[in-house]
Design a protein around this nucleic acid. Sequence first.
DNA 1: GCAAAAGTGTTAATTCTACACCCATGG
DNA 2: CCATGGGTGTAGAATTAACACTTTTGC
Lengths: 199, 199
Amino acid sequence: MNTDKKLQIKLVIFTVIRGKLKIFLPEKVLPSTAIVKEKPLDKIARSLFEATVCIPFKDYYFEQLYTFSQHKEVAIVYYLLLPHYLIPQKSIKAWYDGQKLSKTLTDFSTIKYAIQRLQWKIEYTNIVYSFLPKTFVFSQLQTVYEAILGKGLDKRNFRKKMLSLNILKPTGRMKRLGPSRPAEMFSFKMRRLTYVEIL
Amino acid sequence: MNTDKKLQIKLVIFTVIRGKLKIFLPEKVLPSTAIVKEKPLDKIARSLFEATVCIPFKDYYFEQLYTFSQHKEVAIVYYLLLPHYLIPQKSIKAWYDGQKLSKTLTDFSTIKYAIQRLQWKIEYTNIVYSFLPKTFVFSQLQTVYEAILGKGLDKRNFRKKMLSLNILKPTGRMKRLGPSRPAEMFSFKMRRLTYVEIL
DNA sequence: GCAAAAGTGTTAATTCTACACCCATGG
DNA sequence: CCATGGGTGTAGAATTAACACTTTTGC
């Protein structure tokens, strides 16, 4: 007889759309799948991502959140960051506002914890690269931070802080978003997890 | 046929003995046990603690570290903090210096990560209460911090910082450790996880 | 010339760091 | 009176927070 618990993988998938942090909840629950022997957990998580979001996995940031155990089940939860422009239009209704989640959702506390971890992590790493295209302007970057933190930030202090972290590089190219002055485009020096340097 | 992976719990048990951070490695590996259905993971972890350290579990700080997966196994690792004065004398040889671990240990990288998590956590919580008796003097508290961080701290700055965090309360009682001036005894306001207040 | 977003500097408050001497006690 | 660890303050540096106006562009 099998004395093991039922093992599953769940995913909290984040994106930022029009200044709002969004979470992927098809059928109002986090995507999940059973764990199969012989396959590494992160491979299973990637397959689950591709199967539910319907796009190939690339270099989005991706890490284990926590392992929850209830009754006879164990759920190993990962969270993943996705840039909004890759989301298939037909799934757009499955993305829920992270700041307005109903407390009655099955995965409410898991999602809340994932948001908190994300809020911590953007303070001392470059992971927001996963929400942004290769090049972007400061207002786009700031919008991502504000969406995740759920509050507005001072434009001047934000720019100074970001530049001092030494994780961005200017591209020299300019971009216009609206009917206004063009903005300088930046990119991340690294598009993989980098911890902010402490002097 | 069973398609699940083999599930186990592991424990990284910390203590501080004579100014050194120590890890419990009987047989040079982390204590571990198979997971049994119907029992919550934290209960299993407590039983494993009691069975290997041979003392009852109390209010020591205890949290999940990470879930590692290799081959056909999944190990859910917890870490736990224990005050040195509860350690049975006969197990004393099983406690290894955290700053001098052999890189060839089976669980080396797991332990390294646990130390890092512990180092982070003492900066913004009161968890070191788990290493200390109910009342203690400042030099004891500082010794614990220094052991965990692996470096010396300035006595004056340390005291100022700790008092400003508002997690300690003076007891009014004094204590002598050596042939010197008595020291004031303090205790933690809370002996459970408390996050440091941000103003 | 107007609307819209980009870009920029200073000041005050706070926090952090480095650092050295006197105090209370027991023997 | 000596050895031992307890206890204390200050000044400079660095970091953070608050705050408003000018620039560039398209229309």
